[in-house]
Computed example of a mutant assay.
Amino acid sequence: MKLQPPSDPNRLDAPARIKGRGAASNPEGRFEGIAKTREDDGWHRDDEPPARPDTVVTIERARSIISRNDSPDIHFEQSINPYRGCEHGCVYCYARPSHGYLNLSAGIDFETKLFAKTNAAELLRAELGKRGYACSPINLGANTDPYQPIERRWRITRSVLEVLAECNHPCTIITKNALIERDLDLLAPMAKARLVHAFVSVTSLDNRLSSTLEPRASAPHRRLEAVAALNAAGVPCGVMVAPIIPMVTDRWIEQIVERAAAAGARHAGYTILRLPYELKDLVREWLELNVPERAGHVMSLIRQMRGGKDNDARFGSRMRGEGEFANLVRQRFRLACRRHGINAQRDLGLDTSRFTPPRAPSPQGELF
């Protein structure tokens, strides 16, 4: 039986903003059968700030590394996620409910209890070497960010890129962290061979908003600097205006496209906020804590774009939404791109013909 927590807003486990974290609570996942509440033991003070949970990274020895999909909404068939969970803490992240499969919460757990796939490069080399492997671009960052802060230490994304570069295998990258600049020594030569295209996700141009919405991602201006740095180094880098949250981030659509074009971007995309499973409650919680005067209006607009529901998982509409507000966003985005010469060429032009399977290890070593 699932126990329901009390509705008293002054209870000990009531949601509260935690500096450096996106979620304000740690609700049970949808697969758990028991709900837990904290009880006051007499030591808690009303003026005591909420605890700031530490990031804990667990080594995961994955069994496979390439994920495949046939979704008509996604422009790639293969992807790699070097990490489970994401320290960026973006409260809107559609990947949060995936932590439920680990018997963990989509809330604080998702951004503090992380898993590093330390054998990713080893598995990738084995999968690329399989007989009959058909080369198609691999996306890094489809679920969780490949350049989240822990990548600075673990360097798993870099090890994956090293294998892809060695095999002349094309890839795309989606990130919201300027740490991608670290790997320009790998990305620039790959770009010359038409093997890589990057996208940096920018949701707004407001640093204060970003610090609560996506607290451990790079600041918006820093992400645009990364777009400029990659393009200046010859690595084609576009921008993703994603996700667009009505009455919270949509006001920056035109400015982001303009700034991205000035940074050399020639491709751009966008998505509308999605609220699968536990995510809808986490986002409602964030709205009530950060923009309470607009919370009801924001959720009303979301439901208008989702056929009267909090979420619409149907292919064809889940990324862009439907209805008048969704159509308005679509028109604004297209006009902004046309004005600044973005998306003139939708094909990313990645070359799959150069792919060379990795050489199998030999007991005699590499003599030639």
Rank of each mutant, 00 (worst) to 15 (best):
residue 74 I to V: 07
residue 41 D to E: 15
residue 74 I to P: 02
residue 103 N to T: 11
residue 84 R to T: 15
residue 71 S to T: 00
residue 106 A to P: 05
residue 50 P to I: 08
residue 75 H to T: 11
residue 58 T to V: 07
residue 47 D to K: 09
residue 43 W to L: 09
residue 78 Q to I: 01
residue 44 H to L: 14
residue 106 A to T: 06
residue 93 C to D: 05
residue 74 I to A: 08
residue 71 S to L: 04
residue 62 A to P: 01
residue 83 Y to A: 13
residue 99 H to W: 15
residue 110 F to E: 13
residue 53 P to S: 00
residue 93 C to M: 10
residue 58 T to D: 13
residue 101 Y to A: 05
residue 113 K to W: 00
residue 42 G to W: 06
residue 64 S to C: 11
residue 42 G to F: 09
residue 99 H to I: 14
residue 79 S to G: 01
residue 50 P to N: 03
residue 98 S to F: 07
residue 71 S to N: 00
residue 88 H to S: 11
residue 104 L to N: 05
residue 99 H to V: 08
residue 108 I to H: 12
residue 47 D to E: 14
residue 107 G to K: 03
residue 104 L to K: 09
residue 72 P to R: 04
residue 109 D to G: 11
residue 90 C to F: 10
residue 74 I to N: 07
residue 55 T to E: 13
residue 102 L to E: 15
residue 51 A to M: 10
residue 98 S to P: 04
residue 88 H to G: 05
residue 79 S to D: 09
residue 91 V to Y: 02
residue 40 D to P: 12
residue 52 R to P: 03
residue 78 Q to L: 10
residue 80 I to A: 09
residue 80 I to R: 01
residue 43 W to Y: 09
residue 107 G to H: 02
residue 62 A to K: 07
residue 52 R to N: 10
residue 41 D to T: 15
residue 69 N to M: 06
residue 50 P to T: 02
residue 65 I to F: 05
residue 61 R to W: 01
residue 105 S to E: 01
residue 79 S to N: 03
residue 106 A to W: 05
residue 73 D to H: 03
residue 61 R to L: 00
residue 62 A to W: 08
residue 43 W to N: 03
